[in-house]
Write a protein that binds this DNA or RNA. Structure first.
Lengths: 152, 152
DNA sequence: AATTAGTTGCAAATCGTTTGCAGCTGGTGT
DNA sequence: ACACCAGCTGCAAACGATTTGCAACTAATT
């Protein structure tokens, strides 16, 4: 199943359809690669007055239902992405300098036997989070330039 | 360098040697696979009266200096491990049921060209965090048993 | 339309972590 | 041994993301 219509998705999961959930889920479908609960909340039209707590509750619910998945935790804040065949699991790169998060080329979850086999016998792997950290190309270049200038 | 003596390690890094840092770093060397700042704080002898804030500051400092590394963030809390050749980077598994964290067999950071190559040209990868999540063997077994009983 | 289980908004609570600040201490030069 | 000062520490308060209690509201069912 790979629904892009919020109402259909909620119904398919047997969830109560409310205005707030529709707005939140539709926004999730419209969002780019990843988002935080706060970004989601801010992206919602303010006249709808969806409470931040409601956004958190909805995201948690959608995560349990497999409509959304957590792609990483940075600082004390969680990043989510819509879970659908158009957005397969993939690694992320976080720049220590500018803080930006980059989506990397997908690693195939099912084929990545090697990653999953890291877990021992009897373990059930439901999620793999792969986060790389360091300097992005832009910040690395800037740092090199600064070093040169400083070294003169 | 792979020091196991707290005082030597601090000196080698050019850091001020204080009673508190000695106690904290020595405890880190004595700790098992991973620890949180709070666990570290609680593990310290209470008569020393090392403040929790001091522990946080020390851990952050040690991380910057490469004595310690962050192995993952779960919920809003960070897990650290001592960084030394006896404790090479390795994946972790977190059980969704019991919350336990397991150390998995190490993946070789230097050899894992494949993981690092996920980042694009020009990116500098300084850290790789690989976290698997799901059910540990014990919780999985318990769940199977419960399902059987429930299905009778 | 009545019922009810589930949902929402609001405010307050949590929890890990960070920070401001005044007092203390380690390391250096005398 | 002494004085000095940058850097640490303890304390309490601040912070930011997330969760929760509760009373009012609403979707789905009868």
């Amino acid at each position: 199943m790979d629904l892009c219509d919020a109402r259909e998705a909620l119904k398919a999961k047997g969830l109560t359809v409310t205005e707030q959930r529709l707005a939140i889920l539709q926004k999730i479908f419209d969002m780019g690669c990843y988002f935080t609960a706060k970004e989601l909340h801010q992206a919602l039209p303010s006249e709808k007055r969806v409470d931040l707590a409601t956004v958190y509750r909805a995201v948690r619910l959608f995560e349990r239902e497999g409509l959304v998945r957590c792609v990483g935790e940075i600082g004390n804040c969680r990043y989510y992405a819509k879970a659908c065949i158009h957005n397969p699991p993939h690694a992320h790169f976080r720049c220590e300098k500018c803080g930006r998060l980059f989506c990397l080329r997908p690693f195939n979850f099912d084929d990545s036997k090697e990653l999953i086999s890291l877990a021992g016998e009897g373990f059930e792997v439901r999620r793999v989070t792969l986060m790389l950290e360091g300097l992005c190309a832009k910040c690395r270049k800037e740092q090199l330039i600064n070093h040169e200038e400083g070294g003169k």
